[in-house]
Design a protein around this nucleic acid. Structure first.
Lengths: 338, 338
DNA sequence: TACGTTTCCGAAAACCTTTTCAGTGTGCTT
DNA sequence: AAGCACACTGAAAAGGTTTTCGGAAACGTA
């Protein structure tokens, strides 16, 4: 009934076809040991003939190495998780590693389940990708394999974590505004309970303090990560005299720009605007295009993967590593350019 | 130097600790065969003690089933690929399957390489996820395992493919406009060489024809999938008398709405607008929020996964299956509501 | 021819689990 | 007391590969 799928060829079949023992076949295929050239050729031809693929399971069973890593996403993979994940996948692909993707969807039961599965499959290591920069519970305690955390750091400082350096990122953005001669700067950002909002506010205020300036409105305007809040915040901010706004996200910036334009303010001539995240769909489509901070998440993912390799080789690098962001300059901050 | 990671416990260790043979230990753990209750308990306790995890590699080697599937993304995973991928991952997770993620980044060399790796790892099946609805080359010819294509169909009709039904989706959108009393409808969409643009144009015109109407401007306005094109297209469209616009994507719709508002047209009072994709970041943030077509991609991914299960069980379902879209009604098409 | 040296090849063990089948011991029946 | 059925347990094989080590053949030298 069901078309019997042909069992894949084994090294036994290859050896038989080549008229040698499996030991010789193995050595010929792996270029190991003493095998006469003529014999090696015979084996190679036989393998080709049968389109032989060595069974990775059997191989791993012996070597104790699966050349596989688990990618555990705690929250459902989203806007920030994806680039990290892609960066990691990229690095692993280059290292001939395969990636097992597990999405716990924010459910710790499911996370435990996936963890058990990955352990049973004897993965060589684990990357845990979070959805915000808030610290998350460690899973590495007494885990018999190396773990690296990306984007969301582990709450255990002995673990290896990689996070974007939001404080420096925000600082860079504000320094950019100050360099351009802006002095009356406001800060509109997300909810106070987000670590990202806190960090970006801190960086913003640090940059202002260094320049001997104060925040317009006295303190950051905390709200939510939405365009709507950006529009609402514009109403508040525009009551003050302001020549620049540092926004905690591109969404907020997009909303702010839209509302400010409607109220007749020219961007960037009257007010320079900087966003955060470099979410292309927004930052490239606002009018004018948005100057913003790019967290370089793909690189963060790649770096995390590379450090996982190192950890697998026994060279762990504990601690929370903050990865630099970069400033993407577009027209929302550049007066007099087109 | 490197802290020796303790070798994971084997069933041997468990058996020794419980004072039984490995055969008995195995039977006790799997609830198989005749084992005295007291003995079973001893084994269970020992396994717990050593936090024993049966080695999935050894298990798969015997059973010939890895309970693993490959998820091969041809183009770099993007906006459309992600939800499909998540849906598939979801379905597999429920079925206790693990997922190997491979991103070929649009490179067929890399795709071949990943394919070989997955074959070597003896995955039970494969899902190929594409980035557009254009047909892609089949990889399943003489492949010794079941393959299902999602979003981008295979060019071989004997393969199993799942794609969104864009023709019906567009038709649904236009019928919605007609039901609301709109009669002078334009269509602004993406590049002609996209299958998605073609299908949506076809559905649009079919719905109009059924109602005895004709497209304003005579034919669809093909352009690119961007907000900018939406704005440009508005200039063209507004030269005609128009009371509704069916857009080929939410991005185009967002651009159109913005430009139309600037020109003093009220949405939806003067012109009703419908988008496509239900890309929340846009469709929920335009003013007014956007009526749009949701392709239900997560469901598409889940369905593809379920059919892969079926194919693994020998019950393949060849052909290109078109999955229904759904209409998301928001305020950009609803006159007189708030 | 006898012996040592190379060169090449193959048998077998190891990795870990599941399953089959044979064996042991217990309690019961006659 | 012998025989039997039954409940339980363990030895061994299988799955595919790599590696180790011993053995065989070929060749050269004495």
């Amino acid at each position: 009934m069901t078309p019997r799928r042909p069992r894949a060829a084994t090294i036994n079949d290859v050896a038989a076809l080549a008229g040698v023992s499996i030991a010789t076949a193995s050595k010929a295929l792996n270029g190991r040991g003493q095998v006469r050239d003529e014999t090696r050729q015979r084996v190679l031809v036989a393998a080709e003939e049968l389109s032989f693929q060595p069974n990775a399971l059997a191989r791993s069973l012996i070597s104790g190495q699966t050349r596989t890593v688990g990618l555990l996403t705690s929250d459902s993979v989203g806007r920030f998780g994806i680039p990290v994940l892609l960066g990691a996948e990229d690095a692993f692909g280059a290292g001939e590693m395969s990636v097992m993707l597990c999405d716990a969807r924010g459910d710790s039961i499911r996370e435990q389940h996936h963890l058990r599965t990955l352990l049973a499959r004897r993965v060589d290591g684990l990357i845990v990708v979070g959805e915000s920069t808030d610290p998350r519970p460690s899973i590495s305690r007494n885990l018999p394999l190396p773990v690296v955390y990306a984007y969301a750091p582990s709450d255990d400082p002995d673990d290896v974590s990689f996070v974007p350096d939001d404080v420096e990122g925000a600082k860079m953005a504000v320094q950019h505004l100050i360099t351009l001669g802006r002095r009356r700067i406001a800060h509109v950002t997300g909810p106070t309970h987000y670590r990202a909002a806190q960090d970006r506010a801190e960086g913003t205020q640090a940059a202002l303090a260094e320049a001997g300036l104060e925040l317009v409105a006295g303190q950051p305007l905390f709200g939510v990560w939405s365009q709507r809040w950006g529009r609402q915040a514009a109403e508040i901010v525009l009551k003050h005299e302001v020549d620049a706004v540092m926004c905690g996200s591109d969404q907020i910036a997009a909303g702010f720009i839209e509302a400010a334009r409607e109220r007749g303010r020219r961007i960037p001539d009257d007010i320079a605007v900087v966003g955060y995240d470099n979410w292309e769909v927004l930052s490239a489509e606002t009018r004018p295009p948005l100057t913003t901070i790019d967290m370089n998440l793909e690189r963060l993912g790649r770096t995390a993967a590379q450090h996982l390799f190192a950890a697998i080789d026994g060279k762990a690098t504990p601690g929370v590593h903050r990865m630099p962001c970069r400033l993407i300059i577009r027209e929302s901050s550049l007066t007099g350019t087109v």
